[in-house]
């Protein structure tokens, strides 16, 4: 942060009215002579004012009848501020907020199709369809990272739901994957926390908000299309192992299948395989379940390598 002659904390104390008279006067004199400081201060003061106005509007929202009885005239900016604050997630740009509002990109939509309540995971499900080791100097490609993330997000969701012992292993793997992404550290922190809490025995319901937050943020960071593809393919692999025809008939699965071959960054070999799966599955319910499981495993091997 560039030095502008006054510290952020001093300016914050001024905004909070926590300075004594002499310190306040000194700081105002500094502000008066620094365009940079006053701009930062003005920006902060406007934002605080806007957010406080929004909070007040939320906490004191009158009933409709009361509003009609006491119409209140507010300057245009106040309406804007209140609208923005009330709209909340709709206008907030950052990935956390966006992630919460984009259901179509949520990899967990496939989890419910393969893990109805009470159904346990197949024994020893946790595995790596892609090669286990990579040589030195061979970082993961963005495609491989995003696909693997999609796979592990589904696995983790399932493991948490079924109290599977792989939760710690899965969160550690997700931490590794997201830490390799720009701005991934906060998301990694979410998964570390999740791993700690899950292994301490917290109930799946209590972990769901954390799962949703991490899932949304990780998806946005890595790229929704490929994470979705990885999640769908992992769920498809599991559905094939379960002989679960309803997964392939579900709208979410069919939609993903239809758009999978157009996902940017998909290797050509994977694209051909997806197109074949598309035509096979469109023909009706799968007959060769083992072959289908192999195809999904192969798809993950190609895209996750």
């Amino acid at each position: 942060m560039k030095d502008i002659g006054v510290s952020a904390e001093e300016l914050a104390a001024l905004l909070d009215g926590r300075l004594d008279q002499s310190r306040r006067a000194e700081l105002l004199a500094s502000l008066g002579s620094s365009e940079e400081a006053i701009e930062a201060y003005a920006n902060a003061a406007s934002v605080i004012s806007e957010l406080e106005a929004g909070d007040t509007a939320r906490s004191t929202a009158p009933s409709k009848a009361a509003s009609r009885a006491h119409p209140r005239r507010l300057p245009a900016w106040s309406w804007l501020a209140m609208a923005a604050a009330l709209a909340g997630v709709a206008v907030a740009p950052w990935l956390w907020t966006r992630a919460r509002s984009v259901d179509r990109d949520d990899p967990s939509q496939f989890v419910g199709l393969v893990a109805p309540p009470g159904r346990a995971l197949p024994p020893q499900w946790y595995g790596t369809p892609w090669p286990g080791t990579r040589g030195a100097g061979q970082p993961l490609t963005p495609t491989a990272r995003a696909t693997r993330l999609g796979v592990r997000l589904v696995d983790l969701d399932l493991a948490v739901r079924t109290h599977d012992s792989t939760v710690g292993q899965l969160t550690a793997e997700i931490v590794d994957l997201v830490e390799g992404l720009p701005a991934g550290s906060p998301v990694a922190a979410v998964y570390r926390d999740l791993g700690r809490r899950a292994t301490a025995g917290e109930a799946p319901d209590a972990l769901e908000p954390l799962l949703a937050r991490g899932r949304g943020a990780a998806t946005k960071l890595a790229g929704a299309d490929l994470v979705q593809l990885g999640a769908w393919a992992e769920a498809g692999r599991l559905a094939a192992a379960q002989r679960n025809a309803s997964f392939f008939q579900a709208q979410a699965s069919r939609t993903m299948l239809a758009r999978a071959s157009g996902v940017p960054g998909l290797p050509e070999e994977a694209r051909v395989l997806v197109q074949r799966l598309h035509s096979d599955l469109q023909a009706g319910a799968p007959r060769d379940w083992s072959g289908l499981e192999r195809d999904f495993t192969e798809l993950l091997k190609i895209t996750g390598s």
Binding site: A8, E9, A12, A40, A44
Partner: peptide, 15 residues
């Protein structure tokens, strides 16, 4: 010396 939220607001404005 201030509320943490105010401090973060100023930091983000400076950033």
């Amino acid at each position: 010396e201030s509320a943490l939220t105010t401090y973060l607001t100023v930091v983000i404005a400076m950033l």
